[in-house]
Computed example of a mutant assay.
Amino acid sequence: MDSNKSNFQKLYAVCKEFREKIDKCVCEHQDLFVNFPHGYCDHICIWAYDYLTSKGYTNIEFRIHDPFLPDRDGSHVWLYWNGFNMDFSCDQFSLEGGKQYASVIVVETKYDKNGYVIRNRYTPEHVTISNRESQVLLEYDPLRVLYAWPNSIKERDIIYKELGIVFEF
């Protein structure tokens, strides 16, 4: 097995495990996580960033725009690590016919010999991938983000307890 496929499989397993833990919290606290995953892309990326960091992943970037859904307007946030784009809230969007996207999508970004982007899909679910350019969010400021929404601190505490993460500034 080549190392990129192995890296993907390990990363995808960690990402799926993370989202399953999030879904468990959401199910147990439905009154707090209203309309989840709609509008939670930034929250879930912060939680995923901290979770992946606790698992030894480093140099994770926050990205903004919409790399996976070519027919959507507005902003969307996801994570990028070592050539892989990771979206943890894509299921807030629907396909034609009302079917939702997968809750976790991991896509590898590669470049051909001329420098053009080639995107390879490794998730088992079908997804159409856009070629839109994204911006890197260089600043991760948990204080600013957490205090922007009234329930953020309660949500974070519940999520981090389930994930086994101690939140420190």
Rank of each mutant, 00 (worst) to 15 (best):
S3I: 12
N4I: 02
Q9R: 10
L11I: 12
E17M: 04
R19N: 12
K24A: 05
C25K: 09
C25W: 09
V26P: 02
H29W: 03
D31G: 10
V34P: 00
F36M: 08
F36V: 08
Y40A: 03
C41D: 01
C45Q: 09
I46H: 13
A48S: 13
Y51L: 03
E61K: 14
L69Y: 13
D71N: 15
S75K: 03
H76T: 06
L79Q: 00
N82M: 03
G83Y: 12
G83F: 12
F84P: 00
M86V: 14
M86P: 08
S89L: 13
S94L: 14
S94M: 13
G98Y: 06
K99C: 11
A102N: 15
A102H: 14
S103G: 14
I105M: 03
E108G: 02
E108C: 04
K110S: 00
Y111D: 11
Y111M: 14
Y116G: 04
I118E: 02
R119S: 13
R119C: 13
N120C: 10
R121K: 14
Y122C: 11
Y122A: 10
Y122K: 11
T123W: 05
T123K: 11
P124I: 15
V127A: 07
T128F: 06
T128S: 09
I129T: 01
S130V: 13
E133S: 10
L138Q: 07
E139C: 05
E139S: 07
A148F: 13
P150E: 05
E155T: 08
D157E: 10
V166N: 06
F167R: 11
E168F: 03
